[in-house]
Design a protein around this nucleic acid. Structure first.
Lengths: 247, 247
DNA sequence: AAATAAAACGCAATAAACTGCAAATCTTCA
DNA sequence: TGAAGATTTGCAGTTTATTGCGTTTTATTT
């Protein structure tokens, strides 16, 4: 068997399973461990995979390891910072929950005036704690895991308010399907939130661009601002031109 | 299984549930506790999560409220313990806020069934986090110092529910004036809470017995249980015999 | 204050990776 | 064709990584 064949086989396996074990390969290819190791070293050198103890993993699979959590956190802060520019004194703002919203809440300047409506107790506490803004918590059943309030009571209370700006984090936004989500209760609430606001800003890390879930929240046309950590000119964002303004 | 796979699994679980238990992971992944601990330490080092006793939590949900040293915490725990005895499976319970309520929330057994209505987001989060109880947050304007919700919207929502037991912490309870408080908004809410419950339990540290504030919440006759850290036979409590039961 | 559970620490066993070397195989050119 | 040189391979010895276990320390609960 040619070296090339062997290395192609390894790459195929990586693409298939996102990982390979050195020992498996050595059985499947009938060569010694050392040979496999040398192959992996070569392939790593030309950037086709990442070696790890016991084998190797695909580069894309590896990506969420080294970079994200730290970086996603940084990205989220970047997004929060951009979003903050939309907020002015005296505004009525309605917010959802999620990690980006929490980052935003932590950045709100102490002297900002205005009213924050939110369905997230975490955001409510965070904002109330560090600013002089009025915080109105929209209540209802507390969803486990996401820690936001949902249910008919939330919808009813939302129907009674009117705000300048609605800030939503999102699980998935795609150029064809718009905003989508998985949880029915959450979708109902988000729909109502959007209805109650003059402007809608959607915050999303680039990683989630293109993702599609089962339930539709709203069309891209309804989105006034799309805020990501990317440069607005980034080609990844070109598909989202239906959105009023990309930040 | 590769280390990277294992750590990726842990991160997935964290993103999904916002928390993981060391022992769960060790079962699910079939490795020793030590290995999981080492993984968690690694992941914490690169900022992917925050280790806590018993497991780890998502960085973004890192509980933002480090509670200030709670005054008379031992006594409050004792009171919370006694109060817990009033709670049975399947009950509808309505609670206020305050440090004693938080202690109680932390003691709620994981397997308790029932519904918790509360005007305190902190209590709501605490209960939702550590039990399978349904948590309904009664919302409104978030009062800055007490972190509880007040206002007409709270009153209206309260008027629509009916619960078995209302749990209130109190600032002041006296044998002549009953429950009293200083904040008008808070008093309105407490009055409505009491109205909506079949039984009322008042929790108070002995130190506050005898204190009187300007605004009346309710009469001693309305109190079904008075719970303090003292022995029910304690002479200090003899003046409060109007209360149905002293614990 | 005692009992319990979890975490930290050091240690040893095992598995994997690395190193240098020699044998086997392949290239290339007379 | 066949021999020098280069490449590839497998092997033995050494180094490094990973893991589980017993013990001690620290947290948490009663």
């Amino acid at each position: 068997m040619l070296i090339e064949e062997r290395q192609n086989y390894i790459l195929t396996q990586i693409n298939l399973h996102n990982k390979v074990h050195t020992s498996d390969l050595c059985n499947e290819l009938n060569v010694s461990l050392d040979t496999i190791r040398r192959d992996l070293t070569d392939l790593e050198k030309i950037g086709k995979l990442v070696k790890v103890h016991g084998g190797a993993i695909s580069k894309s699979f590896h990506y969420p390891f080294q970079q994200p959590a730290v970086y996603a956190q940084e990205n989220k802060k970047e997004i929060a910072k951009k979003t903050l520019e939309l907020i002015e004194d005296g505004m009525n703002i309605l917010t959802g929950g999620g990690t980006i919203m929490l980052e935003l809440a932590r950045m709100i300047p102490e002297n900002l005036k205005g009213t924050f409506f939110t369905i997230s107790p975490l955001v409510a506490l965070e904002v109330a704690q560090r600013s002089s803004i009025d915080v109105i918590l929209i209540s209802g059943k507390l969803a486990r895991n996401s820690y936001i309030c949902t249910g008919p009571s939330v919808i009813r209370q939302l129907s009674e308010i009117r705000v300048d700006l609605c800030l939503l984090g999102t699980n998935s936004i795609s150029s064809t399907e718009g905003l989508t989500d998985t949880d029915w209760d959450v979708v109902q609430v988000k729909k109502e939130m959007i209805k109650r606001a003059n402007k809608l800003a959607v915050m999303s890390i680039a990683e989630k661009l293109g993702a599609i879930q089962n339930l539709t929240v709203c069309d891209l046309n309804d989105v006034d601002y799309l805020i990501t950590e990317l440069n607005p000119e980034d080609p990844e964002l070109s598909k989202y031109s239906k959105v009023n303004k990309i930040k």
